[in-house]
Nucleic acid binder design. Structure first.
Length: 874
RNA sequence: GCGGACGUGGCGGAACCGGUAGACGCCGGAGACUUAAAAUCUCCUGCCCCUCGGGGCGUGCGGGUUCGAGUCCCGCCGUCCGCACCA
């Protein structure tokens, strides 16, 4: 029996055996309850990094535990293989994106296998292969036919040098990240998925996801952004109905009577070209606070609003103002400090509840075109932005909500009041609560026909067109005569051409000599293939369904997919809290709506794990150094913060050499130790060495036990205290793994190991060693197999049963009672479990230490918590 | 600005429902084994005082509730994350 566990030899041997036996294939035979454990599949960027190792180890522990606990476990792996890095590599390294991607997949698959994951590799696929994306095209057409896909003009970030569309993240300070060219806004005709049609159910569905982190649910809720309010119409005032009230602070009943008549000519936009005649006679605004309608002092529209654009024609100052609004950064700091600016159009709009009352119409930089209606009414007293704006332009500020009657006349200072209260200065609304006033105004608007209660969402439809090569081709053909025509099903998949050219900028599909030239499926005329590809988030919106069921001739088999879904536990980074998870939820619901799959939510349990961090080092010039460089550096070196591993900070750790040195189990154990899984884990050399020591400690226990000649050794009888410890550990480790509290499960195993090392040989101890190995098996599977075999056990430990905790042994016979005086711990005593209060009190009073503190006086009051403590109040 | 999370030894972190704060690991210290080192093992390790019996102080800060608060309430301070002119 080897004195040391040698992972370099053992790891590969067990991995090979698991693979040969198909140990981790999900059977789906229905003999056992099922569990679907999934980690977010990786993008094949080149090599596995340590964050992957942490992510997949967590899922693996759960999968292995569930297997031992009697479940038929589906734990698959695949590749999110489309995306821009492959195209970048193609341009930089002159390799085909497909070659680059597939070779990365080969590398990373081999690396993942080194850490001994319990994965059903028979289900592996990559999204960049036609046998995946062809089915995706079919699903896209299903949604298209169901009216859930449409086409519209939409703005994109256009890099004029690279001739390509940029994602927002690729625009840095208004310039393309690669070319450095000034980015332009361009309108392109693009495909959209109607996710907004599911806004309500996506929001409501969050309520049932009780095994999701609150944080993620909240983020999604905010992202969906439901606002209830009133949409109503402002009529433009006809000439001669101007109602001046500027600066005088309108109060109750002010209806535009009096004041000087405005010189219409002076404020009228200088149209000359008759543009004003083309203006609509009204426009709509949206508000969540219709109760404050009598506090209105202006109306404002977005610089992108059609009325603003129409007015700008022939009005150079306004055109300049609009241009100015479009400049300026969109960063947090800039927006925070950005001044509220407006341009008075000179036009006035009629207050909907008083035809004699008109308000000035501004074009304002803080009104967004793509939220609500792109137009607002300004109520300065109860909205901070409106207040800032009103102060700047001398507009009236009228309080219409007061928290108490005394404050009704209180003027508004520098802060708008947005709290609760009752209406004041609001005619027939006076005295109502804000909530009642909202209902009243909405009802009135609907009855009178100038507005209606409505819901506005922040969520936008999902634009899925990407002007890229390395993605799923959108299966549409554009015909001059017939318009967009779906590719006939028997012509799917629409396969990406291999012979492409990355030498010239732009989308290679556009430039391909023949690929896009096809006949119209409807009329046969020459037509053009859609050359846009799908957003890669589409690929990841249904891969978990394909894992569950992968027939050749359709995306999935409904019954089979439903038998596994939803995913019981999904594990991945919090960076996907919104987009990926929302899109996958949408896609699942869309499939349900079109009758393809009866699943509401794709992931019933979600866990977002923390990052792996590492120290950073810098030389005096601020250059980042790797830890090795820092050690060898001749000059002074600054030890920086512990940060997320990144190439730029040179603090990454490549897992492969570490696995080579310490073995998979030590690395896995380290990934699970110390830090709670949802928090960041700091990588350290000391930490991995500690894990290595622990692996060897378990091995020594097993080797020593095996050396006794199986369980023929008979010691001094049973060791009841150890038995209790063992069974408490069984219960604790199982509960902690189920709760994904791996750091606590690790601590439980350390405790048991400490106890075993101290325990004298006995049959109890022999049994305990075997149980320890079974409990550790999900975490350190290679060591566990090796030890299992060394102990002469039959079969694989991967197939062994999770030990059952004996309830009788979970109950303590004796408990330690804390004895407090005035809440301060003074002594402890040992008492039988369940001892009577009177007995505990008596024992506490008998304590010397207590007697000394009490100094002969009897306690005024005695509190006894059975099995816990006695508190004597002096 | 809005929303959220968090704050416990030198470090990562435990602490069920308000009931012995600091489990477990790392670092550090002392010792054993060794010619020596590594490895391994044993013990110690929150801070401060001490007559070595013990005593005092301790969960970001200040209050409060309670027999009793890391845990609950109020007010601050700090760190991190998300969103962002959302009407």
């Amino acid at each position: 029996m080897a004195a040391r566990f040698n992972p370099l030899e053992a790891d590969a041997r067990w991995q090979k055996l698991w693979e040969e036996r198909g140990t981790f294939h999900a059977s789906g035979d229905g003999a056992r309850p099922r569990a679907y454990i999934l980690e977010m599949f990786p993008y094949p960027s080149g090599r596995i990094h340590i964050g992957h190792v942490r992510n997949y180890t967590m899922g693996d522990v759960l999968a292995r535990y569930k297997r031992m606990d009697g479940f038929d476990v589906l734990h698959p792996m695949g590749w999110d293989a489309f995306g821009m890095p492959a195209e970048n590599a193609a341009m930089e390294k002159k390799v085909h994106p497909g070659d680059w991607t597939r070779s990365n997949i080969d590398t990373m698959r081999a690396q993942l296998k080194l850490i001994g994951l319990a994965i059903d590799w028979s289900r592996e696929f990559a999204t960049c292969e036609p046998d995946y994306y062809g089915h995706e095209q079919a699903l896209f057409l299903d949604l298209y036919e169901a009216g859930l896909v449409y086409r519209k003009q939409s703005e994109v970030n256009w890099d004029p040098v690279d001739m390509t569309v940029l994602a927002n993240e690729q625009v840095i300070d208004g310039r393309g990240w690669r070319s450095g060219a000034q980015v332009e806004r361009r309108k392109l005709s693009q495909w959209f998925l109607r996710i907004t049609a599911f806004a309500d159910e996506l929001l409501d569905g969050l309520g049932e996801l009780d095994q999701w982190p609150d944080k993620v649910r909240l983020m999604q809720e905010n992202w969906i952004g439901k606002s209830q309010g009133l949409r109503f119409r402002f009529d433009l005032a006809s000439e001669g109905k101007e109602s001046p009230s500027t600066g005088s602070g309108r109060t109750e009943g002010g209806s535009g009577v009096g004041g000087e008549a405005l010189d219409a000519e002076a404020v009228r936009p200088r149209t000359g070209s008759g543009a004003v005649e083309a203006l609509p006679s009204s426009f709509e605004v949206f508000t969540t606070r219709p109760d404050t309608i009598f506090g209105a002092s202006f109306a404002a529209i977005s610089p992108d609003h059609p009325i603003a654009l129409a007015l700008a024609e022939g009005n150079a100052p306004l055109a300049d103002f609009i241009a100015e609004c479009k400049q300026g950064g969109t960063t947090a700091a800039e927006l925070e400090t950005a001044e509220k600016k407006g341009f008075d159009t000179g036009i006035r709009v009629v207050h909907p509840l008083d035809s004699e009352w008109t308000l000035p119409l501004y074009v304002a930089n803080f009104v967004l075109m793509d939220y609500g209606t792109g137009a607002i009414f300004g109520c300065p007293a109860h909205d901070q932005r409106d207040l800032d704006f009103a102060r700047k332009y001398g507009l009236p500020v009228t309080r219409v909500v007061a928290p108490s009657p005394e404050e009704a006349a209180e003027p508004i200072g520098d802060e708008a009041y947005s709290g609760p209260g009752r209406l004041v200065n609001s005619r027939f609304l006076d005295g109502l609560t804000a909530e009642d006033a909202i209902r009243d105004v909405i009802a009135r608007a609907e009855a009178e026909g100038w507005g209606e209660g409505t819901i506005v969402w922040r969520l936008r439809d999902w634009g899925v067109s990407r002007q890229r090569y390395w993605g799923t081709p959108i299966p549409i053909i554009h015909c001059e005569a017939c318009g967009p025509v779906p590719v006939p099903r028997d012509q799917l998949p629409v396969v990406l051409p291999e012979d492409i050219d990355f030498e010239t900028p732009g989308n290679p599909l556009d430039r391909h000599p023949t690929w896009s030239k096809v006949d119209c499926p409807d009329c046969g005329a020459q037509a053009r293939r859609e050359t846009d590809t799908l957003d890669t988030f589409v690929d990841s919106s249904w891969y978990f369904i394909r894992f569950a069921s992968q027939p050749d001739d359709s995306p999935f088999d409904r019954a089979e997919a439903e038998s596994w879904l939803p995913v019981d536990q999904y594990i991945g980074g919090v960076e996907h809290a919104i987009l990926h998870l929302l899109y996958a939820r949408f896609w699942t619901r869309a499939l349900k709506r079109i009758g393809r799959l009866d699943v509401d939510e794709p992931f019933s349990g979600l866990f977002t794990q923390g990052m792996v961090t590492h120290v950073t080092f810098q030389d005096p010039e601020g250059r980042w150094l790797t830890p090795e460089e820092a050690e060898a550096h001749p000059g002074p070196v600054t030890r920086g913060r512990v940060e997320k591993m990144s190439k730029s900070k040179r603090n990454t750790v490549d897992p492969e050499p570490i696995v080579d040195q310490y073995g998979a189990d030590a690395v896995r154990w380290f990934m699970l130790s110390d830090s709670p899984p949802e928090r960041d884990l700091e990588w350290s050399e000391a930490g991995i060495q500690g894990s290595w020591r622990f692996v060897q400690r378990i091995w020594r226990l097993a080797a020593e036990e095996a050396g006794r000649g199986s369980s023929t050794w008979l010691g001094d009888g049973e060791d009841l205290a150890l038995d209790r410890k063992v069974h408490r550990t069984i219960a604790a480790v199982g509960a902690n793994i189920e709760a994904l509290a791996f750091n606590k499960a690790v601590a439980n195993l350390y405790e048991l190991t400490n106890a075993l090392e101290k325990a004298a040989p006995s049959p109890s101890r022999s049994r305990a060693v075997e149980i320890l190995i079974r409990l550790a098996a999900p975490m350190v599977p290679h060591l566990a197999e090796e030890a299992w075999a060394a102990l002469g056990r039959e079969g694989l430990i991967a197939d062994a049963e999770w030990p059952a905790a004996d309830p009788a042994l979970l109950v303590e016979e004796e408990v330690t009672i804390a004895v407090q005086v005035n809440g301060k711990l003074r002594d402890t005593l040992t008492a039988p479990k369940g001892a009577a209060k009177e007995l505990l009190e008596e024992m506490a009073l008998a304590s010397d230490k207590v007697a000394r503190i009490l100094d002969g006086k009897p306690p005024r009051k005695v509190i006894v918590v059975p099995d816990r403590l006695v508190n004597l109040v002096a």
